[in-house]
Each structure stands twice: as C-alpha cells, then as structure tokens.
C-alpha cells in the first residue's frame, strides 16, 4: 500500500496546474471554471515565498495529489503589527479530497512554528470545504467570518462572454438594460498604465491604507513591483494628478475555461483610490476597462474585500456576480482577537 506523504512542494508548477485542471473539470463539467493555478499566475503569487515550508504538498509516491500554499504575510490592524498566513490555492486531485485535511493539519503545525497570529482563507459558500471548516472545525477552533464577498463583473466583449458563459436570453437582456455591455471611455492624460517610476508613489499610497475595520497587508517594494506589473500576467492603471499617482487599480489576467473556450478576464486584485473624487474614480475604472480590452480580456471581475466602496463600480455598470465567498480568519494566537475586523487589504482569490 502506498501512503500519502505530506512534504514541501517540489516546485513543479506544471504538475500543479495539470492536477488543478483535472479537479476543476471534474467539479464543473460543462460549466466554466477559473484556471487559478496556471503556472504564470502561480509564479507571480508564489514568488514572495521565502522558504519551501510555506508550500505544502501531498504526494502518493512521486505523484502530486494535493496542494496548499500557506503564504507568510505581515499585516497591521488598529495600530498593531501581526504575523499572518494566507492559506490559498488549495486543490486536490479528484478522489483525493481527504488529503487536504492532512495539508490543513500540517499548515497549522507549521504556522505555530512560524509564530503566526492568524491564517486567512477564502471558501466558496456551501462547498464541501466550507462545510468542513464552518460546521466541523469551526466548532473547535476560532474561525471567524470577516465578510461575505461577492463578485462584480463588467463586460468588455459581450458576444464572447455570451458564448463562453452560455448566458441565456434574459441574462443578456438584463445586462443590456443595465448597460453592462457599453464601452467605457477614459480621460487621456490623467489615466495611464503603470511605469517603473510610479513604484515609490504607489508604495506610499499602499502604506497609507488605513481604516479601523481593515486588516492591511504590508508590502515590500520588490513584492509590490511584481504585483503591479508582470508582463502578460498583471497590469496596473494609475490616475495621475500633478505628476503624482493619486490612485491605482491592479489586475491579473486569468482565464475562464470551459469545454468550448479559454477566455481571459481581468481580475481586480487591489485598488487604492481614497484620494480621488467620483469623476476621477470613474476615469480610473474606464482606464481599467481599456487596459483589459487591450490585453484581450472579455470582461472584468472584482471581489469586494471591504477595502474600497463599490458605489463607483455600480455606477460604471458593473453587475453583482452570482458567487458568494466567505473571507475567514482562523485565529491561532490565543491573545489575538482582531475585534471589529470587516475587510482585508489585499488578498487574492
């Protein structure tokens, strides 16, 4: 009998992507699913990992059967610094779902070694892993729901979205009545793509993010630069005022895959625009729309983590996306409680 062994991930991102695609295909059948483990995305998201202990894998012999990234992060909340872990990208080969329990147990052990105060994790509501965490583990551990996240979507290329997502006549009609298919127009000169020279200003903006209810991630300039622009994977649009970046939005290009197609979408990863007025916010969103179009994306998806208001999105004809995800925090340090936490800046799904 071959045992399942939990050990550090061997770094084979192609094997990880293949396993994830097999799992998503099995779970979603004819429906579209997001290719969240594409090697280009994994290279970006896992680039900050300082130590192989933070990438956990379950192997049956030499075959990868489950994976969990447990990314170390530094956060601040209400003036206090915390060590956290972002548990993400969990996936298992079909019929090996139980191996994720091994990975969760091992990540808890390693988080204790690392001295993490908490772990953040997102779970799709009513999915089996959601039941596992909320109903069973939640009865024994301090797992809090920070907020219920819903998506916001904006069409760029309507015929492509209709074909790929198999939208019905009434869905298309509703979207058109709302105006979700209309092109958006930016303000040339003030909204533009990110340039290397913007890093300092953007880092200052990120360091200035602060709300009493917001858990804020601290970025190193190197890490931030990678997220802001990685050729073909991530892109940033900035709003410039008097030669200084006053707001920005960053997205990654992720593919929705179905038996019919593989369609790129622009997923908003983070956004800072507290210093912009309503018109400037609309201009920045229009710049996002244009950048997505230029990169061949069929639409834009954003996930509301509580770090920005969604009003400008709705005014820009974004529509709520019918998928609910819980953002949870698993409190590990008995002295840590994060009272009143309602959102996180920044967390990728």
């Amino acid at each position: 009998m071959t045992r399942i062994e939990v050990r550090d991930f061997d770094g084979d991102l192609e094997a990880l992507a293949a396993m994830a695609r097999e799992a998503w295909r099995e779970a979603y059948g004819a429906e579209s699913w997001p290719d969240l483990h594409d090697p280009s995305l994994s290279r970006l998201f896992l680039a900050d990992v300082p130590d192989p202990r933070f990438l956990l894998a379950a192997y049956e012999g030499s075959r990868l059967v489950a994976f969990l990234a447990n990314l170390p992060r530094r956060y601040h909340f209400q003036g206090r610094a915390y060590r956290g872990a972002h548990a993400c990208m969990m996936i298992a080969r079909p019929s090996y779902g139980g191996a994720t329990v091994y990975l969760i147990a091992e990540s808890l052990r390693r988080n204790r070694e690392f001295g993490a105060d908490f772990a953040l994790l997102t779970l799709e509501r009513k999915h089996r892993s959601w039941h596992m965490m909320k109903k069973h583990l939640g009865s024994r551990h301090r797992i809090l729901t920070v907020r219920r996240i819903y998506g916001l979507a904006r069409v760029i290329d309507l015929p492509r979205v209709v074909a790929a997502e198999r939208l019905g006549r009434f869905e298309v009609l509703g979207g058109k009545l709302w105006g979700a298919h209309r092109p958006m127009r930016g303000s040339p000169g003030q909204v533009r793509r990110y340039r290397e020279g913007d890093l300092h200003h953007i880092h200052q903006l990120v360091r200035g993010v602060s709300k009493p209810s917001l858990l804020v991630r601290e970025f190193s300039p190197d890490s931030l630069a990678r997220h802001l622009h990685t050729e073909g994977v991530s892109e940033t649009v900035v709003y410039e005022r008097e030669g200084v970046v006053a707001g920005f939005v960053t997205f990654t290009v992720r593919h929705m895959v179905s038996p019919r197609d593989r369609v790129p979408w622009a997923w908003v990863d983070f956004l800072v625009w507290e210093g912009l007025n309503g018109q400037e916010k609309q201009a920045l969103l229009a710049g996002l729309w244009e950048a997505g179009r230029d990169l061949g994306c069929a639409g834009i998806v954003g996930w509301n983590m509580g770090s920005y208001s969604v009003g400008p999105f709705l005014r820009a004809r974004f529509v709520p996306y019918p998928r609910l995800i819980d953002l949870n925090v698993w409190l590990l340090n008995p002295e840590c409680s994060l009272p009143g936490v309602r959102g996180v800046f920044e967390l990728f799904i």
């Binding site: 009998m1 139980g98 892993s129 039941h131």
Partner: peptide, 24 residues
C-alpha cells in the same frame, strides 16, 4: 485493517474531518 481512508475507502475531506473529530 489495511484499508486506506482516502485511496481505498474514498473518504473526502468533510467525512475525514468528521471522523478525526469523532476520535478527538
């Protein structure tokens, strides 16, 4: 005795956690 919870019995994450908490 030799049955593996995952590879032989096909136990998924939800049921495995249930069982482990039961033993706990």
């Amino acid at each position: 005795p030799e049955a593996h919870f995952i590879t032989d019995l096909g136990v998924d994450s939800l049921r495995l956690v249930q069982a482990l908490l039961y033993l706990e």
